[in-house]
Amino acid sequence: NWDDFGKLKQSYSMVDDTHYGVPFDNGAAIACYRTDILEEAGYTIDDLTDITWSKFMEIGKDVHEKTGKYLLTSEATGGDTLMMMIQSCGANFVNDDGEAYIVGNDAAEKCVDLYVDLVKNNVVKLVNNWDEYISTITGGEAAGIVNGNWITATLMGTEDQKGLWQITTMPKVDGVDTATNYANNGGSSWYITSNCKNVELAEDFLASTFGSSTDFYDAILPETGAISCYLPAGESEVYNEPSEFFNNQPIFSTIVEYSSHIPEFTKTPYHYEARECINTAVVNIVNGTDKESALQEAQDTLAFKMTE
């Protein structure tokens, strides 16, 4: 029953309305916050739930002023923050014709404007690489993260922070009618390859496990940490067990629920190239390049990479 999977997750393995795979690993984006740092600044997790990025900036500036902490950390060159921002609007940096679409893309420009302001106002800590990104989190320099839910495994490795983190929805982009508080970053699907010797058996296996069995997902969650894309799994007792690390929130059922709201957007095999180009543009803008020139360069570079 394809209605038992979120529309976005299904679309990753569809061509012309035909299914070619079964969604598996959940990549729904979450926002995670240190509640002790929020409390120090006079906020709770509810203040960061279902908000806009402009409200996030208002709170982040206050948090930094009162605590010296950043409300978010992000990588300068490899970060996914901008990709999640635009995809939460059901948009992308590539259009439906498969062409680079940065200049003249209203959603893209709004995302860039917001992101640059977040950096310039000490709300986002812009770091150079993944190791620095992780150290800002584990070292307590950043009070929050927005990323795919797989980031919870990294957080849970900081035993001294048990009970201090909570999750909620990511902020949504101001001024875009299609904006939501939901995005995706990561995940996977299962496929039957063309050289399969017994297609019927393979189809039956996928349909009876990843495609329909809550018992199956209950069994693999504690053993592997793989979070289901199959929406009914989120209703099970296993998925609704409170997480001690996340202040007893039932994070797994929450993540599955988030995945049902993520909007569809244009897919591209040049995801990482687009990410690199737009992040370079942001760094250049922060360092003084005018926005129009930086975005045009990003557009031209991405268009060139798409011809290679």
Rank of each mutant, 00 (worst) to 15 (best):
K125I: 04
G78I: 00
E159L: 11
L201F: 06
L302I: 01
N284F: 05
E141N: 11
V103S: 11
E276G: 03
L231H: 07
P263T: 00
D174L: 06
I102K: 03
E99N: 10
I51A: 02
D80C: 09
D4P: 01
M156T: 03
N95K: 07
D174H: 02
K125E: 08
Y258E: 09
T168W: 11
Q10W: 14
N279S: 08
W2P: 09
V116H: 07
Y191T: 02
R275M: 15
V116S: 07
E141Y: 14
I45A: 05
A31N: 08
T49V: 04
Y230D: 04
N1K: 14
D113Y: 10
A29N: 14
K7R: 06
E141P: 06
H19R: 14
K66G: 02
T138L: 15
D300N: 12
D177I: 01
Y270P: 00
D25P: 05
V286E: 12
D25A: 08
K55Y: 02
K172I: 03
A281M: 07
A107K: 03
G148N: 10
M84C: 00
T158L: 15
S54D: 13
T280W: 12
K162Y: 07
A29C: 13
I145Y: 14
D80Q: 11
I137G: 13
S11F: 13
S228A: 14
G79S: 11
K9T: 10
S260Q: 07
T136H: 15
H271M: 15
M85P: 02
I102T: 04
E99M: 11
C111A: 13
H64G: 03
G98H: 11
P250M: 12
L206P: 05
N287L: 03
D117M: 12
T73M: 09
Y270Q: 11
N1H: 14
G42W: 09
F245S: 08
F246H: 05
L164I: 07
K197V: 13
S260G: 06
K120N: 14
T168L: 01
G211A: 02
K69G: 03
S208D: 12
S189P: 06
L8N: 09
V124W: 10
I134Q: 14
K110D: 00
T81R: 12
C89L: 00
L206F: 12
N185T: 00
D174F: 04
K69F: 01
N284P: 11
I102S: 03
V116N: 04
G144L: 10
K120D: 09
G186M: 10
V103A: 12
Y133V: 02
Y191G: 00
I145H: 09
D62I: 03
V286K: 04
H271D: 14
L221H: 03
T136M: 15
G144M: 10
A31E: 12
E109Q: 12
N284R: 15
W2R: 11
E223F: 13
G187E: 10
Q166I: 02
S208M: 10
Y33N: 04
T266S: 13
P222I: 07
C196G: 01
L71P: 00
G148D: 08
N184S: 13
F205V: 11
C277S: 13
A303S: 06
V199C: 01
I30F: 08
L126Y: 09
V256G: 01
D215Q: 09
L118V: 01
